[in-house]
Write a protein that binds this DNA or RNA. Structure first.
Lengths: 140, 140
DNA sequence: TTCTAAATGCAACATTGTTTCGTTTAGAGA
DNA sequence: TCTCTAAACGAAACAATGTTGCATTTAGAA
């Protein structure tokens, strides 16, 4: 599907209005693919993009199952486009993320699923995040 | 071993001076055991403990292998006392952490080791962090 | 006891994110 | 196509978390 079509489809599916900012931001995520983006990275790409609006856009996208958050070792949060299985308030992308200490990029390892582990019985598990870090292929 | 003895031993082992702040903070971690503490939690426990000094103390302890950082889903970082195997700049506690969404506590799951996973060959793995979240036993 | 490098405490700053509120705009309905 | 309203936006102010620079204090070696 063409980019503009995918953008339209995703926003419609999430019951979101087609605003300039949303189209702009969503395009970035679609183009980034499995690379997770921080708010700052998106912000500096578009000079006249309001910081606050951007934060709200990210939050909205996350709630609609369009993007998912990847906990970053550095503390700042990054986001990447979801797989098709995600929907409103129901993220299905239980894959690991890799953080490269050199280029500071976070990528989704879509094929590395988080294994199920035996927890002590009194813990009720809801989510799990696995962050691997080291040096990525491009930086070696 | 008694608490004061352990504090002395740990600081000596890390080549750190026995200062008031360090003894105070280390005592907190030893008493907390597998429960990870945030900077804020420690800060509010001691009214006249300087925020900046505390941050520096935490950093120093981490570098010396006395405490380790547990990436928190909420973004703020928490720390917990290391197992005996850790040493300067060489943390050996590759266990998962559990974050309770109700009480907002993070605990070390010392028995839940992070499994080794097959990464694409061009990734050079150095660290891994596994954060499980849900509701802990005490909150159910 | 003296002395110095290490540790502390304060001020100022940086980053990341939220809240409030007035203004603009998407898009549903006439 | 035009009107209208709820949704989205933009600006200011604030909050949480953490860092840097620098002058002062202190642990502990000599």
């Amino acid at each position: 599907m063409e980019l503009d079509q995918r953008i339209k489809h995703l926003l419609k599916h999430g019951n979101l209005r087609m605003t300039t900012v949303r189209k702009l931001v969503l395009k970035e995520f679609l183009e980034a693919g499995s690379i997770a983006l921080s708010s700052y990275e998106i912000e500096k790409k578009f000079e006249d993009l309001d910081r606050i609006t951007l934060y709200r856009t990210l939050k909205t996208f996350e709630e609609c199952g369009i993007i998912h958050q990847a906990v970053d070792v550095s503390g700042r949060s990054k986001y990447a486009i979801c797989s098709a299985d995600c929907s409103n308030h129901n993220h299905e992308d239980h894959h690991a993320h890799f953080y490269c200490k050199k280029c500071e990029r976070t990528v989704c390892l879509d094929d590395v699923k988080i294994p199920t582990l035996n927890l002590p019985t009194d813990f009720q598990l809801e989510d799990s995040q696995l962050v691997l870090s080291g040096v990525c292929g491009a930086c070696q």
